[in-house]
């Protein structure tokens, strides 16, 4: 944010790995200090954060599409307002996160371009289609519930801008989760048609939601490094287990069936143990071959292309008014 004012670029000059600096950096994290833009950080810390934060931002931006497609069909005035506000918040969360990545030197032009040309990744969950109205409730209950687990952890992250974005997002996301629960509780106890819709939605969203937490710890090479640097303080499997235990209790209460024949309660540990996750499906979707990858990218590209003359016109007007002064 100050590159064009400082005579020398302090940040880049100090980028080469230096054991003393690294030790001081890690000591700051151990003391619970936040690393702020401009502070010395290992190149790998910066790289991992830009990767994670921009993927997270893209997930929010692309995440507007599946739910956005149901705004025109919301079945009452209240649900319509709620859904617009929710999708609007997702745009807001994308905006906060792009900002956090910008503090590390990434530009929004670059990040958006990487998203549009398919180079950047985003959460695989948004490549599944919402097929009925009950999916709006199920996404709030499951997908947002899972996201909150991850985001609550990241609110404690060592990088100041990411952690602050997460604090804001968690506060707002709680409404998303609650409106989803409200819908699913109602439909699970509603008319036979509503109940069938809720169960069908659970059947389709359960496994993709569990995949949102990422590969098992044994297959997740980044985790120890990210833990030491205070970025991810809980592992994928820990977060997944917390989510599973809470969600299954609620599902049973409202009479919904978890679509997992191998699911069992383990008395010894007090945890629900799930069956095998289909990681082949996960990697297929992550690598671009999910049910909606092409559709999502096409929609983002269309909005971007259709908006180009608009962005250019306002830039041109600003330029003209400046030269007029």
């Amino acid at each position: 944010m100050c590159a064009n004012i400082l005579p020398t670029d302090i940040t880049l000059a100090s980028q080469n790995a230096d054991p003393a600096k690294l030790a001081a950096f890690e000591a700051r994290i151990t003391r619970g200090e936040k690393i702020e833009p401009g502070d010395w950080m290992p190149a790998e810390y910066r790289k991992q954060l830009v990767r994670m934060i921009s993927q997270h931002a893209h997930s929010e931006y692309v995440g507007m599409l599946p739910e956005g497609s149901w705004i025109t069909r919301a079945p009452n005035l209240r649900q319509k307002l709620v859904l617009i506000a929710k999708v609007q918040d997702e745009g807001g969360h994308g905006q906060y996160l792009y900002h956090a990545a910008e503090t590390l030197g990434a530009t929004r032009e670059e990040m958006i371009e990487a998203l549009l040309n398919g180079r950047a990744k985003y959460s695989s969950i948004f490549n599944y289609p919402p097929l009925t109205w009950a999916d709006m409730g199920m996404i709030g209950w499951l997908v947002d519930g899972a996201a909150i687990k991850n985001q609550t952890m990241l609110a404690h992250c060592s990088y100041g801008p990411y952690s602050r974005a997460m604090v804001r997002i968690c506060a707002e996301e709680s409404f998303h989760n609650k409106q989803g629960k409200e819908m699913i509780y109602r439909y699970a106890l509603g008319t036979p048609k509503q109940k069938a819709m809720a169960q069908d939605a659970l059947n389709r969203w359960w496994w993709p939601t569990l995949m949102m937490f990422g590969p098992h710890d044994s297959d997740s090479p980044n985790t120890p490094q990210l833990a030491r640097w205070g970025i991810k303080t809980k592992s994928n499997d820990e977060l997944r287990q917390e989510f599973v235990d809470e969600t299954i209790a609620e599902a049973h209460l409202v009479g919904l069936t978890i679509p997992d024949p191998d699911l069992r309660y383990d008395e010894a540990s007090g945890h629900w143990l799930i069956g095998k996750i289909d990681w082949d499906e996960f990697w297929r979707v992550v690598n671009g071959d999910g049910p909606c990858n092409k559709e999502r990218l096409a929609a983002r590209n269309k909005a971007h292309d259709d908006g180009q003359w608009v962005r250019e016109a306002l830039a041109a007007y600003a330029h003209k008014s400046k030269s007029a002064i």
Binding site: Y61, G68, I71, G91, K302, G307
Partner: peptide, 17 residues
């Protein structure tokens, strides 16, 4: 509301919603 997610720039997605 049909613009939500399809506006020319992210800030305006939010503004128009």
């Amino acid at each position: 509301a049909e613009w939500t997610g399809h506006a020319p720039i992210l800030e305006e997605d939010i503004a128009f919603a």
